[in-house]
Simulated assay, not measured.
Amino acid sequence: MSSKSNRYIVLVEGKKIPVEVNRGVIQKIGNTRHEMALKRVDTDEYIVEIDGKQHSGEIIRLKQNKCIVSVNGNTYSFEITSEAAHRRTKKIKEKAANASLKLTAPLPGKIVEVLATPGQKVKKGEALLVLEAMKMQNEIQSPVNGIIKSLNVHVGASVMKEHILMDIEVE
């Protein structure tokens, strides 16, 4: 009875390397087949035999699918995942990068000046509006580089703490 091979990818510094595993043993790295064996010496120490050559290795850190190992004194950091999981993670990261930031009032007060308009490109630290609170005027600045998607207040509006003042599309 033959065991089904599983395909994974190893991410090393953003580079994808396909790996084929059969019965828990790596059979193929990239497009090259290898004869591999793994022998545990101690809790985290192993002897890895690849194509007849032995290498001593140690697992330094293994958390979920992120690994840091030492082989023959060299340290390697990589991530093991499936191609489908990698695509999902990449899509989620892209979606988060395109998300908007909801700028909220840091304290209750009254809007006395609006310096930004929808569609305006803003830089981190740029003044967007002035909020008067306890007879003091507070300049509310952009926390990110982006584009104003919507403005949710107007001059004279009273706002409470955490009131959404505007949406900024993060760049």
Results as ranks from 00 to 15, higher is better:
68 I>N: 11
11 L>F: 02
67 C>L: 15
6 N>D: 15
110 K>G: 00
76 Y>F: 14
167 D>P: 02
49 E>H: 00
78 F>C: 06
128 L>N: 07
65 N>D: 12
91 K>A: 14
8 Y>V: 05
20 E>N: 11
81 T>H: 07
25 V>K: 12
4 K>G: 14
34 H>E: 03
62 L>K: 11
169 E>W: 05
8 Y>F: 15
114 V>C: 09
25 V>E: 09
161 K>F: 01
166 M>E: 01
129 L>H: 01
42 D>M: 10
35 E>S: 13
135 K>H: 06
120 Q>W: 02
54 Q>V: 00
14 G>C: 07
69 V>F: 14
156 G>F: 06
167 D>R: 01
150 S>R: 04
49 E>M: 04
124 K>V: 08
127 A>S: 07
117 T>L: 11
74 N>E: 12
61 R>H: 12
71 V>K: 00
134 M>W: 12
45 E>D: 15
54 Q>N: 03
170 V>D: 13
41 V>D: 13
162 E>R: 08
22 N>W: 00
103 L>Q: 05
116 A>C: 08
146 G>T: 00
132 E>W: 02
11 L>D: 06
150 S>F: 04
23 R>P: 02
131 L>N: 03
24 G>F: 00
33 R>T: 10
147 I>Q: 10
122 V>F: 10
54 Q>H: 05
165 L>Q: 02
66 K>L: 11
65 N>F: 03
82 S>D: 05
42 D>R: 11
128 L>P: 02
144 V>K: 15
166 M>I: 04
109 G>E: 05
56 S>L: 13
125 G>E: 05
131 L>V: 02
101 L>R: 06
38 L>T: 08
133 A>N: 03
111 I>C: 04
6 N>A: 14
97 A>D: 13
158 S>N: 08
72 N>L: 09
58 E>C: 07
130 V>K: 10
106 P>H: 04
108 P>D: 06
109 G>Y: 08
29 I>S: 03
167 D>C: 04
133 A>R: 02
83 E>S: 14
54 Q>I: 00
144 V>S: 10
134 M>H: 09
15 K>F: 01
16 K>H: 11
135 K>W: 05
51 D>I: 01
107 L>H: 13
90 K>H: 12
146 G>K: 00
47 I>P: 00
32 T>D: 10
46 Y>V: 00
164 I>D: 13
66 K>Q: 14
80 I>A: 11
81 T>N: 09
56 S>Q: 13
169 E>K: 14
118 P>M: 11
70 S>W: 03
111 I>E: 03
164 I>Y: 09
168 I>N: 01
162 E>K: 14
5 S>Y: 05
97 A>M: 09
28 K>F: 03
42 D>Y: 10
